[in-house]
Amino acid sequence: MSAVPKIRLRDVHKAFGEKRVLNGVTLDIPAGQSVVVIGGSGTGKSVLIKSILGILLADSGAIEIDGQNVTDIPAAQRGAVNKKFGMLFQGAALFDSLPVWENVAFGLIQGEHMDRTEARERAIKTLGRVGLAPEVGELSPAELSGGMQKRVGLARAIAGDPEIVFFDEPTTGLDPIMADVINDLIVACVKDKGITTVSITHDMQSARKIGDRIAMLYEGKLIWIGDAKDVDKAANPYVDQFVHGRAEGPIKMQVRK
């Protein structure tokens, strides 16, 4: 294992106005490891991922990729860093104006300037890796079911052979069987290939399956980090309440009466 972590977060803070979302997040993710960040809605999981991706700018702290501080690098250099990334968005975020194959090949054509014919072949091959037939490539994203859109999103995320893949709620909105299919695809296409991954999810079954390590985010801080196999017997009462889905416990949901 390399001494330099693939991703290193040091005391990362992010606030929106008065609302502090990330309040000193520190985390090292070695190359090849799959980390799942769990936490309730609105705890800042998406903000954490978007800060690493450079979509949001952290207020303070440092974010390093392969030892390079990328916290506030210029936009021109950001493109080169982002070539290392793949991302599966919660709603897949497919481009409606493009057919499926062009969605998958988008990063190859625009980012790597690959010839369209070659990129198309690669896209069809990648669609095959996520269990989709070549004919699906000709469809529009609007013609696909939620599960198929997630698969296309996964194909787009891995088409450029990224070093790090991010998953934002990969199984949200899917039925349990399709959710497990997506989990299996993530394991087969990403985790088993030794790609570093960062996932955020509420789905504990998914977290146990795709994660090597699990971290829990609460009130802007990582309050527990441990092996995925230990999460069910964690002594931390917050983790225990979340993992077992109990209404009673230290985490109080804000319900207006």
Binding site: I55, G79, N82, A93, L94, F95, Q110, G111
Partner: peptide, 17 residues
């Protein structure tokens, strides 16, 4: 629509300004 469905964020992650 691209903004609220995260398609603009997706462009950024695909190294496209």
């Amino acid at each position: 629509t691209m903004r609220v469905t995260e398609q603009i964020d997706a462009l950024t992650t695909l190294s496209t300004n």
